[in-house]
């Protein structure tokens, strides 16, 4: 059951993305790639927030840490991206573990604002530690991944790499959600005291959730750095953390599909609205608000509603054939 769902999610992502990659041109492919990268980050965010109930507004700092680690290792030390990528993910995860133990004693908005402060601090440090990060100039010339001598340096090729990463992360997230560990996280989210009484190590569960979430963010960062091939402090400021949260809420909190839909919508929507001229961002904000008001469970609610509607109609047509 668990394995089947995971595989299903992975195959669905690969198939849908693969189909899209055939018909689209570079600009749309780039947006799709940005969506995929964000989706990886948001799925990770969902592990912390959707499963374990941790509002972390420092997610962009985790993404940045993965991106900067890869950028520094490849440009300053000449590492291969393949070697630097796992290190980037590992460094990010380790960092999450280090801050997790002290910070995760906080709850709700306290945790939200503490992690927001962490994100601001990350931006200040990356902007000023010039010897390591080139400061506000950022690091350019990050090399692309290469497979068998073929550089993954255009949008179409990158999409396949991104999709594989997304499929793996999505499958892992689905598996986690269905596993004992996932249920432990949800138990902690719903009632910490009850969870503790039933023998769950609350602190460890929370730290584990934050670490997994950071690992996905680190992977998103690695993808980001090899996609744009340029990283700067501004790319990972706290506003991006709020965007990740918004993506999850708009898509549908607590679900992998919601995370993917939300990431795609908030990436594409402002670009689609460009036709409106100077007013496009105002409209973007307005549309976000409308979605929140009319779809309180996010776009995933729309999908569910559509499914229910069809089911009801089907039931009318064949009254006895209900599944």
């Amino acid at each position: 059951m668990r394995v089947r769902d995971s595989l299903l999610a992975a195959v669905a992502i690969l198939a849908a993305g693969g189909l899209l990659s055939l018909g689209l041109a570079d600009y749309s492919l780039r947006l799709l790639n940005l969506s995929v990268i964000s989706a990886v980050a948001v799925i990770g965010f969902n592990v912390a927030f959707g499963l374990a109930g941790l509002i972390s507004l420092g997610h962009a700092a985790f993404v940045g840490m993965g991106a900067y680690t890869l950028a520094i290792l490849t440009t300053k030390l000449g590492w291969s991206p393949w070697l630097a990528a796992p290190v980037g993910v590992a460094v990010t995860t380790l960092f999450a573990a280090l801050i997790g133990y002290p910070l995760l004693r906080l709850r709700g908005h306290y945790l939200a604002l503490a992690t927001l402060g962490l994100n601001v601090s990350f931006t200040i440090v990356t902007a000023n530690w010039i010897a390591l990060t080139n400061g506000t100039n950022g690091i350019s010339g990050v090399p692309p991944f290469a497979v068998a001598g073929l550089a993954i340096d255009d949008e179409r090729r990158f999409l396949w790499l991104g999709l594989v990463a997304l499929a793996v992360v999505a499958a892992a997230a689905v598996a986690l959600q269905r596993s004992r560990h996932g249920r432990a996280m949800m138990a902690v989210r719903d009632d910490e005291t009850a969870a503790r009484m039933s023998g769950i190590d609350v602190t460890r569960t929370k730290v584990a959730a934050l670490c997994l979430s950071a690992a996905a963010a680190g992977l998103a960062g690695v993808l980001f750095a090899t996609h744009v091939r340029f990283v700067a402090p501004e790319d990972f400021n706290y506003a991006h953390s709020i965007v990740y949260l918004a993506m999850l809420i708009v898509g549908g909190e607590g679900t992998v599909v919601g995370a993917v839909i939300g990431a795609a919508l908030l990436t594409f929507l402002p670009e689609w609205l460009r036709g409106l001229g100077d007013a496009y961002l105002a409209f973007f904000g307005l549309m976000m608000l409308v979605i929140l008001i009319f779809l309180p469970t996010g776009l995933i609610g729309l999908v569910r509603m559509a499914a229910r509607l069809r089911f009801r109609r089907g039931a009318v047509a064949t009254p006895r054939g209900a599944p």
Binding site: I242, L245, I249, E253, L292
Partner: peptide
């Protein structure tokens, strides 16, 4: 949920 309202204020 509170988080939805937070994102509402962001929007």
């Amino acid at each position: 949920p509170v988080v939805t309202i937070i994102i509402g204020t962001v929007a």
